[in-house]
Amino acid sequence: MNYQYNNNPGRMNKRVTFLNPPGTISNGWPSKDWTKHVTVWAELKTAKGYKLFSSDATQWQGKCVIGIRYRKDIHEKMRVKIANKTYEMDSPPVNDDGNNQWLTIFLKEVM
Rank of each mutant, 00 (worst) to 15 (best):
H37E: 06
V40D: 01
M12Q: 10
W34M: 04
G10Q: 11
S31A: 15
K48Y: 10
S31K: 08
S55K: 13
R15P: 00
A42D: 01
D33R: 10
F18Y: 09
Y50K: 06
V40R: 05
G49A: 04
S31G: 09
N13L: 09
T35V: 14
K14M: 08
S26P: 01
L44D: 08
N7P: 09
S54L: 11
S55P: 04
M12P: 04
W29P: 00
G10L: 13
E43P: 00
K48N: 07
G28Y: 01
T39R: 03
L19R: 05
R11N: 15
K45W: 00
K32M: 10
P22S: 09
V38K: 11
H37S: 08
S26R: 14
L19V: 08
S55R: 12
P22W: 09
N20F: 11
L44N: 08
P30C: 05
T17V: 04
T39Q: 10
N27D: 13
P21G: 11
N27M: 08
K51F: 10
E43W: 02
D33K: 11
A47M: 07
T39I: 01
V40Y: 01
W34A: 04
L44I: 14
K32R: 12
Y50A: 05
L52W: 07
N7T: 12
A42P: 01
P21L: 12
W34T: 02
T17L: 03
A42F: 02
W29F: 14
R11E: 14
K36D: 06
W41G: 00
K51D: 15
R15C: 00
P30I: 05
Y50S: 07
K51Q: 15
L52D: 02
G23R: 10
N20G: 08
G10S: 10
V40K: 05
T46K: 03
T39F: 03
T24N: 07
V16W: 06
S55N: 15
P9D: 03
A47V: 09
G10F: 10
K51E: 15
K36G: 01
S26Q: 13
L44P: 03
R11M: 13
F18V: 05
K36M: 06
R15I: 01
E43L: 08
K32P: 00
I25S: 06
N13M: 05
K48M: 08
F18N: 02
N8T: 15
G28R: 00
Y50T: 10
W41C: 00
K45A: 03
A42H: 01
D33C: 03
G28S: 02
T17N: 01
F53R: 07
F53L: 14
K14F: 08
I25Y: 04
S55E: 15
K48R: 09
G49C: 02
T17I: 02
V16A: 06
N20Y: 12
V38P: 00
F18S: 03
P22I: 09
M12F: 09
N27E: 13
P21Q: 11
N27Q: 12
N20Q: 14
T39C: 03
